[in-house]
């Protein structure tokens, strides 16, 4: 695994410069039931395909940012600061995407 990522502040760096923060999840609002809490804490989509995820430039500027990456090929489609990120594709999330 030796791909490169574009840090929004610093530009292109080897993937080893970064820390991976996992896929973007939706935090429950209000007090969740035990089952919903369990889902939020333990379950992930773990998609074989384009995934929206968190990265941090731990060896450089230290900023957290978002990316979309194809987990099958490691092709990084875009990286952006959270405020500048394109809106999530809501369709894929709710339309019964294969688990």
């Amino acid at each position: 695994m030796s791909f490169v990522l574009d840090c929004p502040n610093c530009g292109s760096r080897e993937v080893t410069d970064f820390g991976f923060g996992g896929e973007v999840t939706t935090r429950p609002t209000g007090r969740p039931e035990f089952k919903e809490l369990n889902r939020y804490v333990y379950f992930r989509d773990n998609k074989a395909g384009v995934q929206r995820e968190w990265w941090v430039h731990r060896a450089g500027c230290g900023e957290w940012f978002l990316a979309e990456r194809d987990t099958r090929t490691n092709e990084v489609i875009w990286t952006a600061r959270p405020a500048d990120a394109p809106p999530a594709r809501a369709a894929a999330a709710s339309e019964g995407a294969p688990r």
Partner: peptide, 12 residues
């Protein structure tokens, strides 16, 4: 440090 900064990024 990473825990703190991640939450700070989630609460801008």
């Amino acid at each position: 440090e990473r825990w703190f900064t991640w939450w700070m990024a989630s609460w801008p």
